[in-house]
Design a binder for these strands. Structure first.
Lengths: 153, 153
DNA sequence: TAAGATTGAGGCTTCAATCTTA
DNA sequence: TAAGATTGAAGCCTCAATCTTA
């Protein structure tokens, strides 16, 4: 078993990574909220519903598409229902389970949001890397997803 | 002004990166909680206090060292005080401001936690990259910190 | 007054427990 | 019973407002 101790450089890398990750997420969230009035979490849900082939999805389908934990999805839907962005529908989708659909307000927000959020993703993420860095990051992220993902509660 | 639209690959990179980032943070948090019984946020505070030259720090010094927003620090200290990990002290540090110190319980946790958390950081982060990838990630993270940091509320 | 610190509200996330119904 | 979904509690994080005191 190798010693678990880290060098100063390794601790520093972990720290700067954690910080950078939080700053990017925060900045993306701020801009989206300022420009479109929705959070990046709400954005994810709206986009998933908008892109779906059916007008409504079962909660389980939405959860699968997002890759989130199911309780996270449920809480998120509750908040978004209160804000009038989505609507829960009984027995609409196949299998008689709870369905989720965009409201008119939700549909109105999302298309504009896609365009604006793209600018944000460029500004706080893509524009800060060259192609080689993008490739490295992609490779690393896919590896993480393989190893740690598919483990949702 | 360049078109803000993103290619599918660019959206995919953003998505996979956001996911990976969350998975790593979650896994680090889980392991630390399971093995030592403290969260990674609590760990950051404890380590900062432990490494400080003085037995107590002013809240502002702690905030500076952590690079967090001051309200985040304040809320975090309130929770940790309730858990008995830290203690707020009136007028101890220079300038008569509120000081923060480790409790005995806090001091007992932190040394063991440092060792164990090192193993976690290796397992969920460092071991998933080679040296070149580490270098790219470090460069990117430092750039992000320069551009988006020092902006705390 | 201004810097240092706290507070309250509200959204996000996880865990564990519970409810519902095929 | 088991899968699908929800709920409650608790911690985390940000924003805006407020309190305190040098």
């Amino acid at each position: 078993v190798p010693s678990p101790d880290l060098t100063q450089d390794e601790w520093a890398l972990w720290d700067v990574w954690m910080t950078a990750q939080r700053l990017v997420a925060r900045e993306a969230d701020r801009r989206l909220m300022r420009e479109v009035g929705i959070s990046k979490t709400e954005f994810s849900v709206l986009v998933t519903l908008r892109r779906a082939s059916a007008p409504e999805l079962r909660v389980g389908e939405l959860t699968e598409a997002l890759g989130w934990e199911k309780s996270r999805v449920s809480h998120q839907l509750t908040r978004m229902e209160q804000r009038g962005l989505v609507r829960r529908v009984e027995g609409g989708a196949p299998g008689r389970r709870t369905g989720v659909a965009l409201t008119d307000a939700g549909r109105e927000s999302v298309d504009d949001a896609v365009r604006r959020h793209a600018g944000t993703v460029r500004a706080v993420f893509l524009d800060l890397m060259d192609d080689d860095q993008q490739a490295v990051l992609r490779e690393w992220a896919e590896r993480v997803e393989t190893l740690l993902g598919d483990d949702e509660a």
